[in-house]
Design a protein around this nucleic acid. Structure first.
Lengths: 321, 321
DNA sequence: CTGTTAGCGCTTTCAG
DNA sequence: CTGAAAGCGCTAACAG
């Protein structure tokens, strides 16, 4: 392994000069600079990452906590991570995957941390600069930085839009109740339903005991036994598959008998549902970009806003009337 | 930050003793051990990861190259990575995401590297111990370690099984032609078709110009214009969605008019296709486990087999006759 | 069985 | 503008 000393020797300068040339940390004559660079190239010198980190106390590593019920990442996270990875790579940061609840995490001194999918009761204290994807729990929202979708607004807008066409009943199958996003969306849903009468309203949270499609299928079936529902909002397109299946089996026409919209599109194939599935574009790529950009600013002591809200857009397809 | 010196001082021993206690690298009396541990606890001492790495030249970091057309991970990779992450975490290794073609990769000295989705022409030389997910290209297969599905066998078995019921024609929409997996599967497909006459046979590779569902839809449509196909194998369930859409639009009954099977299940919802979609379980979790376990053995200089083949299982559902 | 000490490769004052 | 030297925190011979 070639070290900074080898380069210094070959270039006929001291190692501190080599260091300065590489880090642009002091003015150096062009001639010396060239000699150093030439020597480095000849020896194929790469600075030792760990030595550098030890000396500077800066790792340029960003950790990302994969926090999901299964401990593994889901499609939404996957999309966001892809975008984060791109930004990190562009800005010279490494991305380290950290399964939650591994005490190994304490040993790896990261420069910053990304936390995903905050729960209602989250209350952790973290040393490194960090940022949440999603609204953190009330306990920590004062001080925390986060990037989130405008869930409450989106849901209110979406519900209002649908209400125009609701004759009998509307149903909302929300994400799991312990997610802050579930809370925000429920608020928006209810806000839109204020002062609305003469239709039945259902709200239920996903309970994680079974597959999402199966859950939606079962919920819809149960609800249909006692009431008439002509509009359903589900958390994602996997749930929508359960709804479509139920509809097909029971000669319920989508959208004339039942309008369907999914909030998040994890399958990336809403176009290929029959009829094509309406959904809300959560702009995962933009979320990821904002998260990474903001965290890096934070690490570099630049000011950032406490929260940044990424807008969504409703994509109307054939599953809505 | 509390260092090894602080602990040594408080425990009244030398720092090397502290180091030995922590690393179990020399026998230490119980009494001393306790004193050291107590002191460490009191000071909330955590060894400095970078200093340790610099001294030992072992980072315990495993890199994983996300190599896909988009530079980002797909669902298959996501599943495998989840499993890798679990194993790494259990064995005390960190997982670093490395977008391919980032020259940053050269600077981070990893202990080992995982390479995904080998291409036909791959020919890279890598310093660190490394292992491929999927068969590497012929150029490097002599020396490379890899874990793969038994693609050729699986495909031959699958095709033979289907052939019993094929009356008119069979079509196979394979993955992109530059993947070694595409090659292996094509071989299996053709092997099964040896000595078979009187039916038309189609093989086409995904070309990445459009969405997979749209691709399958278009291919099927084109083929159906000039011939009759009653059995189709597609690379994944997203493609299957295109097939289902085409079938629905053209009053083609699945499975009686057209039997459908998908190789990989990225949507995790084959059950909720109507009719339920048959597919091949690639055992992504097992793949990930094998990859991680083997790479860690390699890093630790334990012998491993050059290749390990993970079997698949065909899941027959209603989309097959 | 424990302590001393010389590195690991790089950064960063501080003199020159 | 350049170089000498003192760390960063830890490990691992080597003496004792």
């Amino acid at each position: 392994m070639t070290t900074i000393n080898d380069v210094a020797k070959l270039a006929g300068v001291s190692k501190s000069t080599v260091s300065h040339v590489f880090n642009n940390t002091k003015f150096t004559s062009d001639e010396i600079k060239e000699r150093v660079l030439a020597a480095a190239k000849e020896l194929n010198y790469k600075s030792n990452y760990y030595a550098k980190t030890l000396a500077t106390n800066q790792s340029r590593v960003i950790g990302i906590q994969i926090d999901s019920p299964t401990g593994s990442m889901d499609t939404f996270q996957k999309k966001v991570i892809n975008s984060i990875l791109r930004v990190c790579s562009e800005k010279g940061y490494y991305l380290l995957l950290m399964p939650i609840a591994s005490e190994m995490n304490d040993y790896f001194p990261i420069d910053g941390l990304i936390l995903m999918n905050p729960k209602i009761n989250d209350t952790k204290s973290i040393r490194a600069p960090h940022i949440w994807l999603g609204r953190p729990s009330k306990n920590m929202i004062e001080t925390a930085y986060y990037v989130d979708n405008d869930n409450r607004n989106m849901m209110q807008k979406l519900t209002s839009m649908l209400l125009d066409k609701v004759k009998s009943g509307i149903s909302f199958i929300n994400t799991a109740a312990d997610m802050t996003a579930a809370n925000d969306r429920q608020m928006g849903f209810q806000a839109a339903l204020q002062d609305v009468a003469n239709i039945t309203v259902n709200h239920v949270n996903y309970d994680r005991t079974i597959n999402r499609a199966a859950f939606a299928y079962d919920v819809l079936k149960t609800q249909m036994q006692t009431q008439t529902i002509d509009t359903i909002i589900v958390d994602d397109d996997v749930m929508a598959q359960g709804v479509y299946k139920y509809a097909l089996e029971n000669q319920i026409n989508i959208p004339s008998d039942l309008a369907v919209i999914a909030i998040s599109e994890s399958l990336e194939s809403s176009e290929y549902f029959t009829p094509s599935l309406s959904c809300v574009d959560l702009n995962e790529a933009t979320l990821g970009e904002a998260i990474a950009t903001n965290l890096i600013k934070l690490i570099q002591d630049q000011a950032i806003a406490n929260k940044e809200l990424i807008t969504t857009n409703i994509k109307i397809k054939d599953s809505l009337r």
